[in-house]
Design a protein around this nucleic acid. Structure first.
Lengths: 96, 96
DNA sequence: ATAATTTGGTTTATATTGTAAACTTGTTTA
DNA sequence: TAAACAAGTTTACAATATAAACCAAATTAT
């Protein structure tokens, strides 16, 4: 009855990141940080997990001389996000 | 931009319990256990948390000679559930 | 009768997770 | 050239979720 919720997505910060990435082509670390209000440390860790899961890819480069970390959602990530939203609906749509 | 998700509701099992209780007047322990597929221990703990938060009330009685624990959502719980669903929509409705 | 099993849970121990604080490396500004 | 800032990463700690172990009473089997 209640489908299992992908634990990688069922996390406030990771979900926010995925939500942002679902809407844009790519986003860099500082942008994600600003939008989510997360601390750098937390964001760094969660980005790692999403990367390890294959839900996003990370590219490191430079904007001028400053380092820049750019994140982008993978097809697998899009699919997982879609699935998560579907699953979640089962939880939210109960009667009342 | 991203509202804080009530951590009490942002938990797979607690959310399932609340989701069930949102749709019915009341439900007992064994029913919740069957519907969610949770272990007794886990369910017991999560029910305690929801009770401590004032989101549900628990009544203990007997059905025949067997103990029976009945759970019911409080108005505060309904409000919190509603708020959680609203907040969550902000996360899910991002573009694409 | 009494031993074994089942029902309906609770307590407690452990594994996992989330999060912030502290740190690093390099850059810009005073 | 020293201080402050930018962009992250690492690490340590606190909070959570979960299952395993346990308990008490009822039911069923012997």
């Amino acid at each position: 009855m209640f489908p299992k919720l992908d634990p990688l997505l069922h996390s406030e910060l990771r979900l926010a990141v995925m939500s942002i990435l679902a809407g844009v082509d790519e986003a860099d670390f500082t942008y994600l940080k600003k939008q989510t209000g997360a601390t750098s440390g937390n964001l760094s860790v969660q980005i790692d997990k999403l990367t390890a899961a294959g839900y996003i890819t990370v590219e490191k480069g430079f904007k001028g001389k400053m380092p820049r970390t750019t994140c982008k959602m993978t097809p697998a990530g899009q699919e997982a996000f879609r699935g998560y939203v579907e699953a979640l609906k089962e939880y939210l749509s109960s009667g009342k």
